[in-house]
Computed example of a mutant assay.
Amino acid sequence: MNYKEKLKLGLCLPEDIEEEIDTWHTDYEGDLSLIEYLGLTFDEYALYVENEKLYYEQLSVK
């Protein structure tokens, strides 16, 4: 289950994305890109990178 799926089910917090990114960098040995691993679209990930606060705000609205 990826970050976005866990988020939708309430199994993690938006801020947990940082831990998921760390896990991808240190422990993940698969073939998925970081964006695929997180389950995000390119636009969702770009928003997180460009404006983390706005990313979290948009998640709380959904």
Rank of each mutant, 00 (worst) to 15 (best):
D31W: 00
L7W: 03
D43P: 04
D43S: 13
E19T: 11
F42T: 15
G39E: 02
C12H: 04
T26W: 07
Y3T: 12
H25R: 15
H25V: 07
K8L: 14
K6V: 00
I21A: 03
S33A: 03
L32R: 09
D22Y: 12
G10R: 02
Y37N: 09
D22L: 08
D16T: 08
L32W: 03
D22S: 12
L40S: 05
E36N: 01
G30H: 08
L32G: 02
G39D: 01
T26N: 14
L34K: 02
Y3P: 11
L13E: 15
E5H: 07
L40I: 09
L38V: 05
I21G: 03
L13A: 14
E19K: 11
E15W: 03
E20S: 11
C12P: 02
L38N: 04
H25S: 12
K4F: 07
G10I: 05
E5T: 11
E20F: 11
E19A: 14
L32F: 11
G39F: 01
G30I: 07
I35Q: 04
W24S: 06
C12Q: 05
E20Q: 09
E19M: 12
L32M: 15
E36G: 00
G39P: 02
E5A: 14
E5S: 14
D43G: 07
P14L: 12
C12V: 11
I21L: 01
W24M: 08
D27R: 15
K4R: 13
G30T: 09
G39N: 09
E20C: 12
Y3V: 10
E18R: 13
D31P: 03
W24K: 05
G30R: 09
E18Y: 02
G10C: 05
E18A: 12
T41N: 05
D43F: 07
K6Q: 11
T23K: 10
G10F: 04
G30L: 08
Y37T: 01
I17E: 00
D43H: 11
Y37E: 08
Y3S: 08
E15V: 12
D22W: 06
G10D: 05
E15K: 13
T26D: 13
I21F: 01
L11W: 06
K8Q: 14
G30K: 13
I35C: 07
G39Y: 02
K6I: 00
G39Q: 06
F42W: 11
T23Y: 09
E5R: 13
K4P: 01
E29F: 07
T41H: 04
L32I: 04
E19V: 11
C12K: 06
E5N: 13
G30C: 09
F42S: 15
L13G: 08
K6A: 09
F42A: 15
G10L: 05
L34C: 08
L9I: 03
H25N: 14
T26Y: 09
K8E: 13
D27L: 13
